[in-house]
Amino acid sequence: MAGPDLFIVLCSGEHEKLQMAAMMASVAAVSERPVHFFVSMNAVFAFDGTAPPEARYKGGAFSELIREKGAPDAIDLLRQGKMLGDLEVHVCSMALDVAGWDEDRLVEDLFDGALGLTKFLSDAEGGQLIVL
């Protein structure tokens, strides 16, 4: 039986947290558990479609290992989760406003639009909420 919908709020721009969030989201989504992924604050910069991955991802020692060993790219994992499972990815409308970005600035083929926090939290009632 599927568990409650999983709601993931990613605020951190740290590569390691992005990687973990993408792993959780993609695995849950392909395990017949709907996932709602909300990107805000510094995390938005990791989804800058105008920058290459090596410039987008900011991290520490484990980030270096992820790159050296060729672990799956976090954004590719999220795309796989969308393609193979039930995963929605939204960007925080406030974060876009503050950054002065529009949605076209974000990486392609991933986002399902901008969303306000109030709507996201309302949708998350009854689900499981994880904040990274």
Binding site: V30, K69, L77, Q80, M83, L84
Partner: peptide, 17 residues
């Protein structure tokens, strides 16, 4: 072989489709 978690699982799921 050589793929890290969750790569093998994702490849399996894509293959099952």
């Amino acid at each position: 072989r050589g793929a890290f978690c969750p790569g093998p699982l994702m490849e399996l799921i894509a293959g099952l489709k």
